[in-house]
Design a protein around this nucleic acid. Structure first.
Lengths: 135, 135
DNA sequence: TTTATAGTTTATAATAATTCTAAAGTAAAA
DNA sequence: TTTTACTTTAGAATTATTATAAACTATAAA
């Protein structure tokens, strides 16, 4: 992913391509596979993998800005920390309780035959399947 | 639900039937329909609906003791607060983002036709379907 | 029944994750 | 350039939850 593309990605979603945002975007989006993370985890990884120094608040700000712009998804996981996912397509998750690890499941791998209809006046926004794993 | 039954329920799961536990158990389990709550919500309701005074820590302790004993389930909901559910059978949920309300879906109302197999050496513990609602 | 003991409750302090604040810094517009 | 609006930052504040340790209480033992 070229620097220009990152700039475009940021600009097109109304985000100024600051040093911090570009570094974080490079780290998050320049990869082949989906990446799941918590803010704390991202903070640690950025500290290790980049020479740049980020305020924790900036990581919160940036991740939320990316999420708002649709570049990141938030995942429902039981527990205190919020998980994010670079996979923004509709998909599902395995969750390994032992390791607190999330694994993506492509939407095509889950077929639901029957589902109840939404209650009074409501509509179904989306259906998430969450598969808990054990050893 | 008679007081004796509550005593039994508590004793049989190794919990002394203290005043606090009996009151909270009555409030939680003596109802026809499933009840979903957060600790904060339960605290407010207990303050309104009972004459008894509970320390917040006791509510946390008690709810966790009930959960550990299998009388309550914890539900995965995005957000800071932990949700609990008096429905301890395997089931699914609607979640109404507008009102932060959970609605139970009976297991029989969801039929999944296809599901991926668990990764390397892991087993599937359970499958949760979470249906987000919109207006 | 008392007494002992082990489990409970309580107020408060501590912790953890996250958000807020306001000052200093920086990208882009004028 | 200069200005303006957006960003970053360190640290304070907030929120949900857990830990602590002293007072209390249900139960077992005498």
């Amino acid at each position: 992913m070229k620097k220009e593309d990152i700039f475009k990605k940021l600009r097109s979603s109304g985000l100024r391509p600051t040093k911090q945002r570009v570094e974080i975007a490079k780290f998050l989006f320049d990869r082949d596979k989906t990446f799941h993370f918590t803010i704390e985890g991202l903070d640690n990884l950025l500290a290790k993998k980049t020479t740049f120094k980020f305020a924790l608040a900036t990581i919160y700000n940036t991740v939320h800005a990316f999420k708002k712009a649709g570049h990141l998804n938030e995942v429902d996981v039981r527990g205190k920390k919020t998980y994010f996912d670079t996979n923004i397509t509709r998909h599902h998750h395995f969750y390994d309780n032992e390791t607190s690890e999330l694994i993506d499941i492509d939407a095509s791998e889950v077929v639901i035959q029957k589902i109840p209809k939404a209650p009074n006046g409501k509509k179904i926004k989306n259906v998430e399947v969450f598969i808990n794993l054990k050893n």
